[in-house]
């Protein structure tokens, strides 16, 4: 082997080691969270590093009995599914019009939407709270859902308009000759081709909507409408001295998103990268 080859090899080994250390720094805290949730408080003190003595779900069972965790979980699912579904529908229709038709306010409208990507909605919290109180929507899932949709619109329009522009005009023209109305063209020509982009929009919005803590904290008060992050904060405050339980609370909040990511990771990367390169 040449000197050059050895050098290359050494570089590769050091790169590999660096990346391995980085990976351990990511996985260890997460693993620790799961493992500790199976320990007893005594074990947490005496055996912080090792495996738990037994994998009993005591803390998880306790968590389900002392709190309405299934309700929180259900609420989070409802909020996420409805927000994502609505975002996809209303941004794809709007993007279709913005991408395929010419009218006077077109460019202005596009910029109007896209500007929202750099406006942090939190800064409007006080006014949104006022609006919700006036609409009697405070303390309902609707309040969190509608805010989730509003946040998702700018990015959705941004990605989808670009994507629809790339769909060749000939396809629509052909359908038009066949006598299709414009909405039908949208439905049968555009939507099927748009699926990967719609998936990207859904995936990109999934994490912030599922994990949102700020608006639930401000709007939601009743136990029956709490979402998982809000419940996590509440339970963390209530059971601070029961360490195993607290770790179980954190694990429960993390499992759904991590599983979702691991299953769809390829699409996450594609969706987010397309956003990055266009931005």
């Amino acid at each position: 082997m040449t000197r050059h080859g050895i050098k290359r090899r050494l570089i590769k080994i050091s790169l590999f080691s660096f990346l391995s250390i980085y990976t351990v720094s990511i996985l260890y805290p997460i693993l620790l969270m799961f493992l500790t949730s199976f320990k007893t408080t005594r074990e947490i003190f005496t055996n912080p590093f090792g495996l738990p003595a037994s994998f009993e779900f005591t803390s998880y069972i306790k968590l389900l009995t002392i709190s309405n965790y299934l309700t929180y979980f259900r609420n989070s699912i409802i909020v996420t599914v409805i927000s994502l579904g609505t975002i996809i529908v209303i941004t794809s229709t709007a993007s279709f019009v913005l991408a395929k038709y010419n009218f006077r306010w077109k460019n202005f409208l596009y910029l109007f939407f896209v500007a929202g990507m750099i406006i942090p909605i939190r800064l409007g919290t006080i006014s949104i709270l006022k609006l919700m109180i006036e609409m009697h929507a405070n303390d309902t899932l609707f309040s969190v859902i509608i805010v989730g949709i509003a946040v998702g619109i700018p990015f959705g329009v941004f990605i989808l308009t670009d994507f629809i522009k790339m769909i060749p005009e000939e396809l629509s023209a052909a359908a038009r000759i066949d006598g299709c109305t414009e909405p039908t063209i949208f439905r049968i020509v555009i939507i099927p081709l748009l699926r990967p982009a719609l998936a990207a929009v859904a995936i990109i919005n999934y994490i912030p909507i599922w994990n949102d803590f700020w608006f639930p904290l401000v709007f939601l008060k009743s136990d029956s409408v709490k979402t998982v992050p809000l419940a996590t904060a509440l339970l963390f405050g209530q059971y601070q001295t029961n360490y195993a339980l607290v770790f179980a609370v954190l694990s429960m909040a993390s499992i759904p998103v991590m599983l979702f990511y691991l299953v769809f990771s390829k699409h996450f990367v594609q969706g987010l990268s397309s956003g990055a390169l266009k931005g």
């Binding site: 299934l70 309700t71 259900r74 409802i78 599914v81 994502l84 579904g85």
Partner: peptide
């Protein structure tokens, strides 16, 4: 999403 919705309506009815 469908599976999740079914699951959530299940827990809803349980509640």
């Amino acid at each position: 999403l469908v599976v999740l919705l079914v699951f959530s309506t299940f827990t809803l009815s349980a509640g």
